[in-house]
Design a protein around this nucleic acid. Sequence first.
DNA 1: TTTTTTCAGCATATGAAATTAGATGATATC
DNA 2: GATATCATCTAATTTCATATGCTGAAAAAA
Lengths: 152, 152
Amino acid sequence: MKLDDIDKKILHQLQKDSKITNKELSLGLNLSVTAIFERIKRLERNKVISNYVALVKPELIEKGFMVFCQIKLVQHSKSYVIKFENEVAKLQEVLECYHVSGEYDYILKILVKDMEAYREFMVTKLTNLEHIGSTQSTFIISPIKSTTAISL
Amino acid sequence: MKLDDIDKKILHQLQKDSKITNKELSLGLNLSVTAIFERIKRLERNKVISNYVALVKPELIEKGFMVFCQIKLVQHSKSYVIKFENEVAKLQEVLECYHVSGEYDYILKILVKDMEAYREFMVTKLTNLEHIGSTQSTFIISPIKSTTAISL
DNA sequence: TTTTTTCAGCATATGAAATTAGATGATATC
DNA sequence: GATATCATCTAATTTCATATGCTGAAAAAA
């Protein structure tokens, strides 16, 4: 799907604040409300916009402890990889998971209540996954800039 | 601010889909529309909900190249740290930035069009920041699980 | 060139949702 | 026991998203 400048401006606004009304957008972009409406619908139909979410401050919901966990698999055959990826995606503490280049295979962004909860997560959930080799945890001291949507 | 179970359920829904109507929420939670409305307003007032955003597929807006970049500062006095953090927050390629424990001081999540754009970003923007020591880039081969809101 | 089709936009209308206002009952406070 | 506070309710109002049908420009077909 092709995006023109107007589409990009609309996306830009909706990424900053999806509660902006079509009218406000139309004023800023010199289009009618209907035109804006139809463009947004088109962006949604084509899955350029995948969905709309509320961003919640993690520290306010008793989840103030964020960790980047790097993981090495012991084996990299397709079936192992797929199994690992499926399992890890199910863990609700895992906000994000990426297959990456470099020394480790995966980087996970993990959010829990505190260090104790993290220990529990490691011992009972993460290291229970098969084929996991070594892991390395990097603790977040302070978020400087963040757009992460947090799950309860 | 204290959150009861109803607040948490509301947050949980809004994090999955902020376009859900108060009526739908009220049906699921056996409350009136007004009660839901007041609770959400309260969550917004208290900044538990910081804002609402549209999630956009990065590959569809010509930004398919994501990188974790770890950064070490040469010096850690307060004024340097603050200056670095301010500057880095302004860079639109930087989606997220965290002050972390371990060998490096910061982890940045960066999103650009491609490897060439990343090189350009490193050379012209990142390494231009003062007090930067070494950096290490980890490239994302494939996102397995992700909730990241992308900026154009 | 002329005609037709397609498409993006527009104004207007309407139904649904958000928001406001006022009433009620429960719980805490003096 | 009286009063204040708070969350909730119902009902009224306002605002917004969305559907409909029209218009003109550009593209395609004749």
